[in-house]
């Protein structure tokens, strides 16, 4: 990309931690996703009904799993979008604006998701 590609190499802003965490969260998401698909698609009658969801949401362990799922999914997805954005050369102000938008989306949707889980 730009001539500054290596400006951050080895530094705090190299993105190496995000790169590594993208893999870690990805592996965790695959694990949770297998359970999610078995629960929601292999056994639709037990997964989708209001009563079944309420049963689960009243157990602290399920709340923790659901909150982890929301957190991991949002972080992995929005960090992925940030990776896409970083692939393109643009004015620094544009990068800052887009980064701020991604952080705001993350915070708003994290709040909405956790609010749904913790309301029960």
């Amino acid at each position: 990309m730009s001539t500054n590609s290596f400006k951050f190499a080895g530094g705090r802003n190299s993105g190496a931690k995000n790169w590594y965490m993208q893999r870690i969260t990805g592996i965790l998401l695959v694990v949770v996703l297998i359970g999610h698909y078995i629960l929601m698609h292999a056994t639709p009658e037990s997964g989708h009904t209001y009563k079944a969801v309420m049963d689960r949401l009243h157990q602290p362990a399920w709340k923790v799993i659901d909150m982890a799922f929301v957190t991991l999914g949002l972080w992995h997805g929005l960090n992925g979008l940030w990776n896409v954005i970083r692939d393109y050369e643009m004015k620094p102000i544009m990068t800052t604006v887009l980064y701020t938008v991604l952080v705001l989306i993350a915070l708003v949707f994290w709040f909405i998701g956790l609010n749904t889980i913790l309301s029960f």
Binding site: T49, Y50, K51, V53, L57, V70, G73, L74, G77, L78, G80, L81, V84, I105, F109, I112, G113, N115, T116, S119, F120
Partner: peptide
């Protein structure tokens, strides 16, 4: 697929707020 899934998880989070409106509305 990654961009599509990120958009989907946002829709998914919004859709599940239907749980807050009670059983009839959710069903």
């Amino acid at each position: 697929t990654g961009i599509g899934l990120t958009l989907y998880i946002l829709v998914h989070i919004i859709a599940l707020t239907g749980l807050l409106k009670g059983e009839a509305a959710f069903n």
